[in-house]
Design a protein around this nucleic acid. Structure first.
Lengths: 208, 208
DNA sequence: GACTTAACTGAACAAATGTTCATATAAAAG
DNA sequence: CTTTTATATGAACATTTGTTCAGTTAAGTC
């Protein structure tokens, strides 16, 4: 239940309202600070200072510090799944090899562009309540399964040599997400070059 | 500078001393709690309760909460490098392919046995002071370089097809460390089975 | 102009934080 | 038994924490 959406009940002042500016600012500041220092180490007052507001005002945009974190993680996972669905449709890859290449390139491109959210998604799950933890976990497993399906189909049709599609999917996702630990925008290698390097490794891993 | 080592200056009561029991207990409790809840979310009082002692007594074993974390990370990295050195000597692998297999199996075995320390080593670096961060980073890079060297040598002698040894090393380490996110001791697959599965993937990745 | 209400302030709250230290305890040494 | 000292207590400290809320401000509607 998002307090921000109170405004959408056809009330006045929907244009130029500060909440349209402050709301995103709160989420951006929280995302950056959580990634930098960790959820528990960041105070509501630090977030408020970053936004340019007093701590009390934050509670117009979240009911809790906890649900502020959950909203960020949920939005990230929804973005990820929506982005991949769109990519899968766009590339209309019927053969598993093309689908795997599309996944590889999408995952690297998407994750390097949101390093903060990715980092939080891996590190701060433990700060969620059990239900919220389960909700994020289900979304994650759904994403992992979409790669597993590609691998299983490729193994079935004989273009991949993969014994354990689930485990291979986990291994490949870990490998691809690892790009975030070293990749820098101004580095020696461009993003397309990195994508191609990793696609070559992925292709060899599945024996295609 | 470790306060625990004060005792080692040839003083009395080195046998049966409580500090020989409490000291390790403090580090074990801190390791487990930091991994479970995060460094910032764990209070000195929680650690003390776990040990069965009052909070003030912890300061006989660490000068700081910060250096308690650093000591844990430092000890883990030292363990890792010592373990790998020993393994590299023991397997006396002259050819790159055998060396790569030794690395793969060692990394999986070592890391799955210390999941808490591995998790902290990746998540809590941001809570270190700049010098301490750099110290841990140097140890990590040294470990990464030992894999990079194997890959570079294999590429040079033609048994591997690896374009970028450094990036391939990062990719492989990320893949192998990812085992920790799903592996469970009582699971369907035994550790040797997992090692073999991953070794097959690693071998294919480097084109050997 | 008067009125309504979204957005924010600033003070307040109890609880918890890391750390220190004078004091107590009990185990080893002489 | 007496002395020494490693080890632990428990209270105290100044800050900081998440959260609430009565009141202020200003932007929109009529």
């Amino acid at each position: 239940m998002n307090i921000c959406s109170v405004k959408s009940f056809g009330m006045a002042r929907t244009q130029g309202s500060h909440s349209d500016i402050t709301g995103p600012k709160v989420r951006e500041a929280a995302l950056r600070l959580f990634a930098q220092h960790g959820f528990a180490a960041v105070s509501m007052r630090q977030i408020a200072t970053e936004v340019g507001v007093q701590a009390g005002a934050l509670y117009n945009y979240t009911s809790d510090k906890q649900s502020l974190l959950f909203d960020l993680l949920k939005a990230h996972m929804d973005d990820l799944l929506a982005g991949w669905n769109q990519e899968a449709v766009r590339s209309e890859a019927s053969d598993p090899c093309a689908a795997l290449e599309a996944f590889t390139r999408f995952h690297i491109r998407f994750n390097t562009q949101r390093a903060d959210a990715v980092f939080i998604s891996y590190m701060e799950l433990r700060n969620l309540s059990p239900e919220n933890f389960e909700a994020i976990g289900a979304l994650r497993r759904s994403y992992e399964s979409s790669l597993e399906d590609i691998l299983a189909q490729g193994a079935h049709s004989g273009v991949f040599s993969v014994q354990e599609p689930r485990i291979t999917a986990m291994a490949l996702i870990a490998m691809l997400t690892g790009v975030n630990t070293w990749f820098r925008e101004q580095g020696r290698l461009s993003l397309p070059e990195v994508e191609t390097l990793y696609w070559n490794m992925v292709r060899q891993t599945v024996g295609a």
